[in-house]
Design a protein around this nucleic acid. Structure first.
Lengths: 243, 243
DNA sequence: GAGTGGTCTAGACCACCAA
DNA sequence: TGGTGGTCTAGACCACTCA
């Protein structure tokens, strides 16, 4: 009879992966920073380089970390021209990529209603910030966003700090609150433009829009943002790939 | 083993990966089949098991092949309850998963117009099949599909063969034409239901719908299907994940 | 128990980058 | 030139499956 020493087998590299993730949660290395070299981590954790390598390989596959041959391994970030478009799935039908301009409409503090609280794993009525903004491509308004984040994690957020920042919202979240978005789930429906959307997107009521609901997660799969985007898709499409 | 240094460096495992892919294209192993064991492939290609392993790891990451510990490595297939939903991103808001029922509307032979030909990499006017069908969840029509495939690759396709088959369309393509879909790109817009959609989906004209355009690819990134789905999203959503 | 994929190691060497 | 990630090997052993 073989009694398994532990209820479930856990490979070494998986444990290493967890340890690295914990260091990321603890903020030992922030977005954009280099993490220690494979050899350093191998000696720190007392395993072979190959084992550390496999752990980092998986983190890289999840876009939590980025490898650069000859330079090192870096914590993924939403800063920089390339990475700022990482979570932006809307693109022009003619394929020309362009980063949208963001116009802030309002920042308010609210109490989380039931469904918002559930999605962000907060208690009902918890304090949240609600950011409304308009994304425009080539000066034409295309997306009306309503973004909700827990106030507890984003202390000090207000209209002025956001306006003072140039760059993507997630890049702003990283640099001001140390919160890195690493994964997101989206649920998409087709809806009709109401009065509010019609005004901001400068279209007629009744025009069809994509309603894109997103929950975004940080390290440890902790949900930290819920947003709803209403997107005018006359010259734009939501692009996905699957395999 | 000595690799001659060529203008661009190509790792051994990458070459192995290409060789395996070529065997898949040649039909040496079909969907659902087991491919040779890592050791067998290692001796066949005269490399170490670790190198074959890395090649297969990548193929597995792309869902081209599926590893099963203790059993072997198998060519990915759309047959079977689990895999038939692999490319279906529409799901009920309440989370209950259910495989839709398909009602065939028509199968016609047509000449590819310019844009269809371009997407499928055919010459203008090439012969294609056009399949129209209705997908229903719990008896309620939700998606109106129009599917285009090159006639040259799907010889003998007609209404009767499709009707005689029970199972997903991609499963049918695999078993009857040996064509396995391994990757797809989708472009999504919001549109209004026209007369045709209204009739089939039993809704009023002007109801907002998702218009989902897909190009699907086989081994070697060869496009073999273009489809447009019009989807009623009252109780359903298109679900995606990103990282 | 034989065969498969999965883990882990140790070591050699290559490609890339920066100083 | 030294450090980093990337490749490749050979071998030992573990976990899983099935006959």
């Amino acid at each position: 009879m073989n009694i398994p020493s532990s209820p479930s087998f856990r490979p070494l590299y998986d444990q290493i992966k967890i340890l690295i993730t914990q260091s990321l949660i603890a903020g030992e290395w922030g977005p954009g920073d280099a993490i220690p070299s494979e050899i350093d981590l191998a000696t720190r954790f007392k395993v072979s380089q190959g084992t550390v390598r496999k752990a980092i390989d998986e983190l890289a596959a999840e876009n939590i970390v980025i490898r650069r041959q000859g330079k090192g391994t870096f914590v993924a970030s939403h800063s920089g021209e390339r990475s700022s478009t990482r979570f932006l799935r809307i693109s022009r039908d003619d394929g020309l990529a362009e980063y949208p301009q963001s116009d802030l409409l309002s920042v308010t503090r609210e109490r989380a209603p039931e469904n918002t609280a559930a999605l962000l794993e907060l208690r009902n009525g918890a304090s949240i910030f609600c950011i409304k903004r308009l994304l425009s491509f080539e000066g034409k308004a295309q997306i009306l966003d309503e973004i909700h984040v827990p106030a507890a994690s984003f202390k000090g957020l207000d209209e002025h700090v956001i306006r003072a920042y140039t760059g993507s919202l997630y890049s702003f979240f990283e640099s001001h609150f140390g919160i890195a978005m690493i994964r997101a789930e989206e649920h998409i429906k087709a809806v009709l433009a109401g009065p509010d959307e019609a005004t901001h997107l400068k279209i007629a009521e009744g025009i069809p829009l994509l309603r894109i609901d997103r929950v975004a997660f940080t390290y440890g799969d902790r949900p930290v943002e819920w947003r709803r985007g209403l997107c005018h898709t006359n010259q734009f499409s939501y692009v996905t790939e699957m395999s």
